[in-house]
Design a protein around this nucleic acid. Structure first.
Length: 613
RNA sequence: GCCCUCAUCGUCUAGCGGUCCAGGACGCCGCCCUUUCAAGGCGGUAGCACGGGUUCGAACCCCGUUGGGGGCACCA
């Protein structure tokens, strides 16, 4: 769309500063400000029914008549709870984020005084996933994608995929491609975005520079943004001179520059950054996963929208694109939570100039942590999705596990399909606490999915791993296929990830097996091993019917009965001889598939090892 | 330092004021089954961070403390 359409200049710039004295370096905070901070302030408005104060269930496409669900939502959202008659209304010092606006009505923004226009979008849910293509794909990132996707799918909305490739130094085409590949691997299809297009494109920020320039110009024109010439050193010095902590950051001083002063700075050769004029209001929103969050007025300084060199910055570009793409629900990592007040302020300004149609709902997802409780680092190999893909995690198994990081489908259940997740997913039921990535559990969940795979499906998925090792052709020959299908049910239940098929099934697809040294030490060292091998060879050599039951009978007769040894000792050497390992699929079935010739050859070869050792 | 945020078994969670001496899953430990390894079956271990308040009643609501995490850029 043309961001220019509907541009209206509402307030003269002067008016915006009405209740700000024009003194230099007013500072964003006044003494005692921190004492007025309210945590999750009780914002009940007894004059409004609770239902009206919660985002309309219709907008979220939540089940309307599920009383329990409604109660749960109310719990998550203090603003949606019933008024407590014991709590004096006088404690409510601020009207909150404009509850009426949450019904989707677009209220005329009156900046810097009165209502702060947090307008909840009406209509169809639109979520987005907007990674920057720098390096590997992080599992936490993937979970964010999954939740956004599930939220859109659950509510019959639209899932938008946008690439934030504004950092030329770090972005690469390769990781861009990889990102698309990872999303597709997990089945997270997007309705608008790269390669599929859509009405709000382009979907790569590198192709949207003109838009940002235009929007920035309009913000300045409307008095929402202003040129700022202060260097960090100057801000610092002013803070210190005023006896304040320099860590407070920018002091909004350039808001009050006269044209003459600006001209003077330009003459010095300075090029200004553009900053957004932050409102003199508490910035509040009802977080989809955390309930009400409030930042005190003045605690967030005017922030930079556009660099001195004209390059737009992330905190500017991201909301602009969300606004233009009509995103209604922003689910993102909790690391972005502290920047949300700035975004909300920006949205108000964007709404004012007609670029945005209100403010989206925000939901800040908890961190995925690694060992300890630190956020899972990008440098931690455990955080790389490729590691799991390469090991042969199933997309459905991995998605299932990822979903469990912060969400649960039911009290007594944690295995489910992606489809089932979509049906049940409710963002407001996402837990706010950080979740440790637990490899053991991920494996257990995956193993369950692996076992549940139909045989043909299992074979199809395992073939690439076997083919990569040169064990089978791709596609497998008729004979290989026969063997695979026969062994699949037996292999499935002793595997956790697909790559394990290589070690487990290799012996079926080679002429001569290589015996693992540890296995040889354990099972082929004593003299009894030679005896066992000889007895097995004799029994099998003359077997008329080469079938699993016949093999079983013959071996039991020859070894357990004949030699009078325990099954454990009897079958150990045979297993190692046949498979080369101490762990294998069931023995008799394996031997049947291997055939008499190869089986006898391996018994002989193992006998050689046993006598030599 | 300031701001924000989180707090139930080792881990992920259920819990929405009485139905909870807290349920499930992973892990761990036993036992059964068994030709190995698994799978499966049965059983066990282990938790409401602390202190106040509200209430007839608190894991649940409020306040605080403590502890963890994150953010405070002309990075994204």
């Amino acid at each position: 769309m043309d961001p220019g359409e509907g541009l209206r200049l509402v307030l003269p710039a002067r008016a915006l500063d009405r209740d700000r004295p024009a003194r230099p370096g007013p500072g964003p905070r006044r003494p005692g400000d921190h004492l007025q901070r309210r945590r999750r302030a009780p914002a009940e408005r007894p004059d409004q029914p609770a239902a009206l104060r919660h985002p309309d269930p219709d907008l979220l496409h939540l089940p309307r008549d599920d009383a329990a669900a409604r109660r749960r939502r109310a719990h998550r959202h203090p603003v949606g709870r019933r008024p407590d008659p014991r709590r004096p209304a006088g404690r409510v010092r601020h009207p909150g984020p404009g509850h009426a606006d949450q019904l989707g009505q677009l209220r005329r923004p009156r900046l810097h005084r009165g209502w702060w226009p947090v307008t909840t979008p009406a209509g169809e849910v639109r979520t987005r996933f907007c990674p920057s293509p720098t390096g590997m794909v992080h599992v936490g990132l993937m979970r964010t994608a999954l939740f956004n996707w599930a939220h859109a799918r659950h509510s019959g909305g639209t899932f938008v995929f946008r690439i934030e490739d504004t950092d030329a130094a770090r972005d690469s085409e390769e990781s861009y491609r990889h990102l698309l590949d990872c999303l597709r691997w997990m089945g997270l299809t997007w309705d608008e975005g790269p390669e599929v297009g859509g009405p709000h494109g382009p979907y790569r920020q590198s192709e949207r520079h003109d838009i940002y320039r235009e929007v920035a110009a309009k913000l300045v024109e409307a008095g929402h943004a202003y040129e700022s010439f202060s260097t960090n050193e100057e801000v610092d010095a002013r803070r210190r001179a005023a006896g304040q902590d320099p860590k407070l950051g920018y002091d909004n001083a350039d808001r009050f520059l006269t044209d003459a002063q600006k001209a003077a700075f330009r003459d010095e050769g300075r090029s200004p950054v553009l900053r957004l004029k932050m409102p003199d209001e508490d910035l509040v929103w009802t977080d989809l996963v955390r309930g009400e969050i409030r930042f005190a007025a003045g605690s967030v300084p005017d922030f930079v929208l556009v660099r001195g060199n004209g390059a737009p910055l992330y905190p500017f570009v991201n909301p602009v694109d969300d606004a233009l793409m009509r995103i209604t629900d922003v689910l993102r990592g909790e690391d972005l939570l502290p920047s949300t007040p700035r975004q909300i302020a920006l949205y108000a300004a964007l709404t004012d100039i007609g670029v945005a149609q209100g403010t989206p709902r925000f939901g800040h997802l908890p961190y995925v942590t690694g060992e300890g409780s630190k956020k899972l680092s990008k440098r931690d190999p455990q955080s790389n999705l490729d590691v799991y893909r390469d090991r042969g995690f199933l997309p459905e198994g991995f998605a299932n596990y990822l979903a469990l990081l912060g969400w649960s489908i039911a009290e007594d259940r944690d295995i489910f399909s992606v489809q089932e997740m979509v049906e049940a997913f409710d963002v407001t039921r996402v837990s706010p606490n950080p979740a440790r990535f637990d490899l053991k559990k991920a494996e257990a969940i995956n193993a369950t999915h692996l076992r549940a795979l139909p045989v043909e499906e299992f074979v199809d998925r395992v073939v690439p791993y076997l083919a990569a090792e040169g064990l089978v052709a791709e596609p497998p020959t008729a004979e290989q296929d026969r063997v695979l299908r026969a062994i699949a049910p037996l292999a499935q239940e002793r595997m956790v990830v697909l790559s394990e098929a290589v070690g487990l099934l290799r012996f079926l697809f080679v002429d001569d097996v290589e015996i693992e040294p540890a296995a040889a030490d354990k099972q082929l060292s004593g003299e009894s091993a030679v005896q066992v091998l000889d007895a097995a060879t004799a029994a099998l050599g003359e077997l008329a019917d080469w079938s699993t039951p016949a093999i079983e009978q013959a071996l039991k007769d020859a070894l357990v009965e004949g030699l009078g040894i325990k099954p454990r000792q009897a079958f150990g050497p045979v297993r190692v001889a046949v498979s080369g390992r101490t762990v294998s699929p069931p023995l008799y079935e394996s031997m049947e598939l291997l055939g008499r010739e190869r089986t006898l050859a391996r018994l002989a070869a193992a006998r050689g090892v046993a006598t030599a050792g």
